[in-house]
Write a protein that binds this DNA or RNA. Structure first.
Length: 269
DNA sequence: TAGGCCATCTGGTCCT
DNA sequence: AGGACCAGATGGCCTA
């Protein structure tokens, strides 16, 4: 495309909108530029609001406060949050069932756009940097999707079947810490466990429990065969670190993270 | 250096 | 008419 093909304001026009085009072409270049900057500014604010909401969502996810974890990308934030919500709903259902079995009942939670909008009041009335200059106020709020003319892409989206309901949550088996270690590291030296900081061992077991779909049951480790005092696992699963222990320097160069354990990358010397 | 991620600009379309 | 929303294009930054 040559430089002459570009109009001062109306660029890359793909279809003709004669009214708008005529109106814009009546403007002088300075006025067109001012309008363009105004539109760009609004779009930036809109995207900043979107990112702000995305940051909130990211910070609501488990492990988000862990400085060792890398910041989730936008798409991963959405996907992870979606999966996390499903997980919470499953756990919620399970707990309700347990309550029901105990003869107690509580009313189901009710979610609605209106209550969520109330809780996200700050999105409709953002803090000063993102306050809309629009005389109509900020329209960036949670609301029902607007009706659009069916385009091929939109039609495909509507025609797509809804995702299958999540499978029922099976009662998770509980993992025994000592059994886990004896299964995956059968040739442990007699004094193996005492060589590890117990919170690392606890974290590794807990991480294994999560990755294998089992429930981490805090309990006492065995004595490791060396006549040492038993170790108490006390780390809640919410604090499971995601980083590899190889770098910690406290375990003799042996990594206890699940990934390394399962891939046999670690060696016990 | 390729690929992922992101911010920004931009034009088209819809909504109020 | 003006603003919101959307998606394509583009270039910068970072990392494996």
């Amino acid at each position: 495309m040559e430089e002459g093909d570009l109009e001062p304001y109306v660029r890359r026009r793909r279809s003709s909108n004669e009214k708008a085009k005529n109106r814009l072409m009546k403007m002088d270049p300075v006025e067109q530029d001012r309008l363009r900057q105004c539109i760009n500014s609004r779009e930036r604010k809109r995207m900043h609001n979107l990112n702000s909401a995305l940051d909130q969502l990211r910070n609501s996810l488990p492990n988000s406060k862990n400085p060792a974890t890398k910041k989730l990308s936008k798409i991963n934030t959405i996907v992870t949050a979606s999966e996390w919500i499903v997980r919470l709903m499953q756990e919620n259902d399970m707990l309700r069932k347990k309550l029901s079995d105990l003869g107690t009942s509580i009313p189901p939670l009710q979610f609605s756009i209106s209550t969520m909008s109330h809780q996200n009041h700050h999105l409709q009335h953002p803090s000063p940097p993102f306050i809309s200059s629009s005389p109509k106020g900020n329209r960036e709020e949670i609301k029902q999707p607007k009706k659009k003319v069916a385009t091929p892409k939109a039609t495909a989206a509507v025609a797509a079947p809804p995702p299958p309901p999540p499978p029922p949550l099976d009662p998770a088996p509980q993992i025994n810490a000592a059994a886990f270690f004896s299964n995956f590291l059968p040739n442990l030296p007699p004094n193996f466990f005492p060589n590890f900081l117990h919170h690392q061992a606890a974290a590794a077991v807990a991480a294994a429990a999560v990755s294998t779909g089992t429930t981490f049951l805090p309990q006492r480790l065995g004595n490791g065969g060396g006549g040492q005092s038993p170790l108490t696992l006390s780390m809640p699963t919410s604090q499971i670190p995601e980083f590899c222990f190889k770098d910690c320097g406290n375990n003799g160069g042996v990594c206890l993270c699940v990934k390394c354990l399962l891939s046999n990358k670690n060696t016990v010397s």
